[in-house]
Design a protein around this nucleic acid. Structure first.
Length: 268
DNA sequence: ATGACCTGTCCTACAGGA
């Protein structure tokens, strides 16, 4: 089973590029972020006609996540637990029911910028950065709950975290950025320390492997990228992992997203 | 000129992204 994650930066603008990629890559499951659409306007029938079941958790203008799946989707949960006042549509879970069920969690983790610093130069855990760190604590709590079931699950999406210096073409440019600050990296590491396997690095130790290139400053042409889209697998899911790759070439096409798809192949 | 952002929305200018 092939499961992909793709931050599409707007479903409406990405229909041609997304459709072409789905037809070529043929993922069984596609986890989408930054749909930027309310559920009523999501072009559900277009994807149903391609053989996908569709679950969306959208909002007006910003954020929004969705799951497309050739297998049935069951027990759908929208929204990350732990804060009833959080209105941003960034999280969706569903069981993908094939020969065995895999719990798929799709996430669009908050960016966290801009970060404010105190007089000593320490980042203040407030505003957007505070929201990011709080969101990551809630994600950790949810992962801990799912781990207790000892069944295959995965958390995939746009984490907005550059895990290590080697995951950026210019690491020095990100040292004061919410994507790479120590607290962001530590929260990501803490999630992994629950026993989750990061699929890409499990399969590919090569440098210069990125999933995002900014639209600005000719980032793509200079390969000035960062690796921020990740798959974290539970132990039971990691046992099924056969492959993990980034569809880099998509970035050079007509009307691309600023992210590219990352996918895993599971023996199930 | 080693380089010039994209999307959605409706106050066609602005917020938000990373």
């Amino acid at each position: 089973m092939k499961i992909a994650s793709f931050n599409i930066a707007g479903i409406k603008a990405r229909m041609p590029a997304l459709t072409a990629w789905l037809e070529e890559a043929k993922p069984d499951v596609a986890i989408l972020q930054e749909v930027k659409s309310v559920d009523e306007n999501f072009p559900r029938e277009h994807f149903e006609n391609m053989g996908y079941n569709v679950e969306t958790h959208g909002q007006k203008s910003f954020n929004g996540v969705a799951i497309l799946s050739k297998y049935p989707l069951e027990d759908v949960m929208c929204g990350l637990p732990g804060d009833d006042s959080d209105e941003q549509a960034r999280y969706i879970e569903a069981n993908v029911v094939n020969e065995r069920a895999v719990r798929v969690c799709g996430l669009y983790l908050p960016n966290g910028n801009p970060v404010e610093f105190d007089a000593e130069g320490a980042p203040i855990h407030d505003g957007k950065y505070g929201y990011k760190l709080g969101w990551m604590a809630r994600l950790h709590a949810r992962a801990e709950e799912l781990m207790a079931a000892e069944e295959p699950f995965l958390m995939a999406g746009d984490y907005n975290v550059i895990p290590q210096a080697e995951d950026a073409a210019r690491p020095e440019a990100w040292t004061k950025d919410a994507l790479a600050l120590p607290d962001s990296r530590n929260a990501y590491r803490k999630l992994m320390n629950l026993g989750l396997t990061e699929a890409f690095r499990n399969r590919n130790p090569a440098p210069e492997q990125y999933t995002f290139w900014d639209f600005q400053r000719g980032a793509w042409n200079r390969n000035d990228g960062i690796r921020i889209d990740h798959f974290l697998l539970s132990p039971e899911c990691a046992d099924l992992l056969k492959d993990c790759q980034i569809d880099k070439e998509i970035r050079g096409r007509e009307k691309p997203s600023d992210h590219v798809p990352i996918w895993i192949e599971l023996a199930a």
